[in-house]
């Protein structure tokens, strides 16, 4: 191992310690902001997750050396992350888009239609019998 290499590692070690300290601070911050009322629960959740994401990125970038990795590994992690977001996003979307809203919409329209054309509706009914 060359001296150059040793020097490299030594500068890495400095980074590790700084990141470690940042993570400690981040943890304190997470707890602290959870006691702050941002007005709505959603904002609290968003802030908490934001801090967590920053912390997680620090771990991934510096401790796991993702900041200077090979393309193959970026592709790999990128795809996993993408599909994870797909799974989570689409599942939540599917939940947030229940059918009854559209049904109600149609019902409303139908009511409007019936009111508008009560005459022809009557005609339909008599045909039914």
């Amino acid at each position: 191992m060359s001296a150059d290499h040793d020097h490299d590692i030594k500068s890495h070690i400095r980074t590790y310690l700084i990141i470690g300290a940042a993570l400690f601070v981040g943890t304190v911050l997470t707890v602290a902001v959870s006691y702050v009322d941002f007005g709505s629960h959603a904002i609290n959740v968003a802030v908490g997750l934001l801090i967590a994401t920053v912390k997680a990125s620090l771990v991934a970038l510096f401790f796991m050396h993702l900041i200077s990795e090979k393309t193959a590994i970026y592709l790999l992690i990128g795809s996993a992350f993408f599909f994870f977001v797909g799974l989570m996003g689409l599942t939540i979307w599917a939940d947030k888009n229940p059918p009854n809203r559209t049904q109600n919409l149609q019902l409303e329209q139908k009511v409007a239609v019936t009111e508008g054309h009560s005459h022809s509706e009557d005609g339909d009914h008599s045909n039914d019998h």
Binding site: L23, T30, V31, S34, G48, L49, A52, A56, V59, F63
Partner: peptide, 15 residues
């Protein structure tokens, strides 16, 4: 493993 916990802690304990 650490990274997962970084998410678990706020999600389960705080939010």
């Amino acid at each position: 493993v650490d990274l997962v916990w970084i998410f678990l802690f706020p999600v389960l304990y705080l939010l």
